[in-house]
C-alpha cells in the first residue's frame, strides 16, 4: 500500500510540476464557464432550470474533452518511462508491477478528479450567482455529471495504460491513443447511427441497440446523464432513447466501471509479461 501511495504521490507532483494539472483545470473551467453562460441564455423560454441545461452542454464537453485529457496523461505512463530509462530502476525496487500501474492510476485519476471538480464546480458556482437557488433534482444531475465524468476519465486512463503497456514506441502509443479517442468518441456513434438509419428497425431491435450502446463508454456516459432525467433528455434530444432504455442507472454505472476494470486488468497483465 505504501508503494502505491508513493507512486501516486509522484504522479500528482509530476502533474503539478509539468503544469498538466493546472492546464487541465483551466481548460475545463474555461470551457465549462463559457458553455454555462452561453447555454443558459435562451432557457427562459423553455422554463427549464439553467443548471440542467448546463448539465446537457457540459456532458457534450465531457465526452470530447475528458477522454482526451485522460489519454494525454496516461498513454505515456509506461512506454515513456521505459523510453527514458526510469522504468528499469523502478522495477528493481521492492514493489511489483501492479503496484506501479495502480499507483499511477490513482495519481492520474486524482489529477483528473481535481480538474473536473474544480472546472465544473466553478461553472456551477458562477451559475448559482446569476440564476439563484437550484432545486434538488438539478443539483442531483449536476453531481451525477461530475461523478460520471470522473468515471469516464478513469475508463480512458485505463485504456491509455493498456496502450502504453503494449507498444514499444512512444509515437505508436500517441497514435493509438488518438485512434481510440476517434473511434470511441466520434466514429462509433456515427457508425451506429448510420447502421440504424440504413436498417430502418428491420433487424436491429431496440434491445439490441441498447446493448450496442454499452460497447462504447462515451455512449454509456451519455445515457447516464442525458437519459437520466426526463426534463434533461428533452433538451438533449434523447427523449426517445430514454423511453426505450431497458437498463437502469445502476446497470449503466456497472458497465462503465467494467470499462475501467477490464482495460486496467489487461494492462496489468500485459505489463507483467513484458521485459523492462
Amino acid at each position: 500500500m505504501n508503494a502505491i501511495a508513493t507512486i501516486a504521490g509522484r504522479e500528482i507532483r509530476d502533474g503539478l510540476r509539468n503544469r498538466w494539472a493546472i492546464g487541465a483545470v483551466l481548460l475545463m473551467a474555461g470551457l465549462a464557464l463559457t458553455l454555462a453562460f452561453l447555454g443558459s441564455a435562451p432557457t427562459g423560454v423553455v422554463g427549464a432550470s439553467p443548471l440542467e441545461v448546463t448539465v446537457v452542454s457540459l456532458s457534450s464537453l465531457t465526452i470530447f474533452l475528458v477522454p482526451l485529457i485522460a489519454l494525454l496523461l496516461s498513454h505515456d505512463a509506461i512506454v515513456g518511462e521505459r523510453d527514458r530509462g526510469t522504468l528499469l530502476l523502478l522495477l528493481s525496487y521492492p514493489l511489483s508491477r501492479w503496484h506501479v500501474l495502480f499507483g499511477k492510476f490513482l495519481g492520474h485519476l486524482s489529477i483528473l478528479t481535481v480538474a473536473t471538480v474544480l472546472g465544473y464546480g466553478a461553472a456551477g458556482v458562477a451559475l448559482s450567482f446569476t440564476a439563484g437557488e437550484f432545486d434538488a433534482d438539478s443539483l442531483g444531475s449536476f453531481a451525477r455529471l461530475v461523478g460520471s465524468s470522473v468515471l469516464l476519465g478513469a475508463v480512458f486512463v485505463a485504456l491509455g495504460y493498456l496502450i502504453s503497456a503494449t507498444v514499444r514506441e512512444r509515437a505508436t502509443a500517441a497514435g493509438l491513443a488518438i485512434g481510440i479517442w476517434l473511434v470511441l468518441v466520434l466514429l462509433y456513434d456515427m457508425a451506429l447511427l448510420g447502421l440504424v438509419v440504413a436498417d430502418q428497425g428491420r433487424t436491429i431491435s431496440a434491445a439490441a441497440f441498447n446493448w450496442l450502446l454499452l460497447l462504447d463508454p462515451a455512449d454509456i456516459f451519455r445515457l447516464i446523464n442525458l437519459a437520466g432525467l426526463s426534463r434533461t433528455s428533452l433538451f438533449a434530444g434523447m427523449a426517445g432513447l430514454a423511453e426505450q432504455m431497458q437498463f437502469g442507472r445502476a446497470v449503466l454505472l456497472t458497465a462503465l466501471a467494467a470499462w475501467v476494470a477490464v482495460p486496467l486488468a489487461l494492462a496489468a497483465f500485459v505489463f507483467s509479461r513484458k521485459e523492462p
Binding site: N2, T6, R10, D14, R17, G85, L89, S92
Partner: peptide, 30 residues
C-alpha cells in the same frame, strides 16, 4: 529487494523533480 542496490547504465530520473525529492521518493519505496 530493499537490501539490493542497482545503478543502471545511463541512469535517468524524472526531470521535473529536485534531487532531494527523487532520493526521498526512492527512500520511501525502500
Amino acid at each position: 529487494r530493499s537490501r539490493i542496490g542497482f545503478l543502471p547504465e545511463n541512469v535517468a530520473f524524472s526531470a521535473a523533480m529536485t534531487g532531494r525529492e527523487v532520493l526521498r521518493f526512492y527512500a520511501r519505496l525502500k
